[in-house]
């Protein structure tokens, strides 16, 4: 089991094998802890910069909120070189643990269908997204995806109001349509 885990960590598993491992991880809390421990060890060995305790939770939240439609549709390639992309890999791995842990917490809360369904996809794709950072040759792929920014930094109420006056959905929804205009914009995590 631990060999499999280690192989997954190094990206040496075939895609099918990888998916199986990830789903095992999802259901095995013990294994999840081992996974996290491996990464802490790896980070310590590589003297990676320390990340704050709530880093995984925050990343998981951001991943969950990220519109998945924008994620590049590349299949993660098995990565044979062991330390070629230590930083990217550990970011992805920490993200994965975060998502999995978060998923366990959220699993009974049916009010977050979007986030739940998106999480495993986001986790796998994060591996693909993280790679270009370490490999400049594939930068072009990343450049096509616009940066996700905080909502209130792009649009203020005046734009929303100006848009709303022309939105035909108003005709059916009536004043409730304006709720989107005045909805409390999340200040963080976007």
């Amino acid at each position: 089991m631990s060999e499999q885990l280690s192989a997954l960590m190094d990206g040496e598993l075939a895609p099918a094998e990888m998916a199986r491992q990830i789903s095992t991880l999802k259901n095995d809390k013990e294994l999840c802890h081992t996974w996290a421990a491996y990464h802490v060890l790896g980070d310590a060995l590589r003297k990676s910069p320390q990340l704050s305790i709530d880093f995984t939770a925050k990343l998981a939240r951001q991943l969950a909120e990220e519109p998945t439609i924008l994620a590049p549709q590349r299949k993660p390639q098995p990565n044979t070189s062991r330390y070629a992309m230590p930083l990217a890999a550990s970011v992805a791995a920490v993200g994965l643990v975060g998502v999995l842990t978060w998923q366990m917490v959220r699993v009974n809360q049916a009010d977050a269908p979007v986030a739940l369904a998106a999480a495993p996809v986001a986790a796998t794709q994060q591996v693909a997204v993280a790679k270009p950072k370490a490999a400049p040759s594939t930068q072009a792929v990343a450049a096509k995806t616009p940066e996700t920014v905080q909502f209130s930094r792009v649009v203020s109420n005046s734009y929303l109001l100006a848009h709303q006056e022309f939105s035909p959905s108003y005709a059916m929804e009536g004043i409730p349509a304006y709720v989107r205009t005045v909805s409390e914009h999340q200040e963080s995590g976007r």
Binding site: P67, P146, Q186
Partner: peptide, 16 residues
Amino acid sequence: STLGLSHQGALNVYSR
């Protein structure tokens, strides 16, 4: 000016 993509519920915004 902030460039990028964002959303809130059904509202999506893209700035370039």
